[in-house]
Design a protein around this nucleic acid. Sequence first.
DNA 1: GCTAAATTGTTGCAAATGCAACAGATTTTT
DNA 2: AAAAATCTGTTGCATTTGCAACAATTTAGC
Lengths: 212, 212
Amino acid sequence: MMLEKPRIYENIEQKSLQKLLTSLQSNTLFYKANQTIAYSIRNRNLIGIMENGEANLIRFDYNGDRTIIDELSPGDIFSDMFISTYSSELSVIATTNCQVTFIEYEELLKKCRTSQNAVILLNNLFQVISKTLIKRNERIELLTTRSIRSKLLAYFELQSKKYNSKTFNLSYSYTDLADYLAIDRSAMMRELRALKEDKLIQDVNKKITILY
Amino acid sequence: MMLEKPRIYENIEQKSLQKLLTSLQSNTLFYKANQTIAYSIRNRNLIGIMENGEANLIRFDYNGDRTIIDELSPGDIFSDMFISTYSSELSVIATTNCQVTFIEYEELLKKCRTSQNAVILLNNLFQVISKTLIKRNERIELLTTRSIRSKLLAYFELQSKKYNSKTFNLSYSYTDLADYLAIDRSAMMRELRALKEDKLIQDVNKKITILY
DNA sequence: GCTAAATTGTTGCAAATGCAACAGATTTTT
DNA sequence: AAAAATCTGTTGCATTTGCAACAATTTAGC
């Protein structure tokens, strides 16, 4: 059993939701794969809600090195409210065609005075952001382990717990996984081989099995 | 100018706040330095609000290695709502004497139906958690750089931007800083010396100046 | 003010990691 | 279907990093 994902529109009836979103002057936009999704508009706290498709939250540093900060799936949210004003630039880049609804946080908050559904949506938002924070904490746990081996094992462990199975498919390419774990890809491949030789894992093209 | 900290009790008048907290059956507890602050109660989404003092959010892994996930200051919050059910154990440990108010999230949410101040508090909570998420993103940015040198420089850069000055005091001990950056302390000291020799920074016992 | 504990500062050495540079496989684009 | 681009898998080598161990200094507890 997978930890259930908080649904941003949970507990709001479809019709009421439409009315609410309209009254919030929300905006639904479509993006093609590889397009950059702009989400920052001066002086407005926009919140982007992934409706369909996948995107990555990416950081480019001054060396041009790319790091995947997060993967965004339907129901996930992103916002410049959650992005530091003084850190390096983060971008949201569509990995597949996708559909994003933008709402203005201030509008939502205002609406809470009169609409019970707005309160529910705000709560859902809170739940989603809590889960996002959990994901970040997990990421930090991975990144603070001290070796490539332990990063890989911690990552596999987490996936295993997430899917409640010793066997699971890697959603990342190896190239992306190395980026995610902030390690050198070739060194990672080497360690992956060592893990297989030590019979700690099995790896039949991207299908990992933990053997202990 | 420092980025202002969102205040959890902002925009609520002192008297109304007292009334609100009482009606939420909040609980204020006192802890001594080095005490562990329990914040997990079965089936209840408690939110801890740091009123006074400092604490650290700590992770212990199976090797006994300790990592500081976050520093908590007055106005910061922590909750098992933000902690993964399947990652390793996190603890909140008081570093000074401190005072923590616990509220139940569900109670707060319920209250939003009838109390405008509850909505304000929920918004404040949202603001604080957004800032927390930003902090985590920054941490991830530090951790994803590929060398001790770049971690140190990125950390100093961030502090410099935070305090809007090329000179600032380290709030961490070197031992803790190494933990925070997830690097070996002795290796960090070595690199710190190299940074001084390369005239990239100045370091007069914990007062760092960036020289470029 | 004394003692114990923690932190800082240093070093030699071994091991882990990153880098560069490939070839082959696979996927995507035209 | 051919060409281009990306991803996988591998290796040798240099460098960085962690580890262990220690003395010196500072801080905290009694």
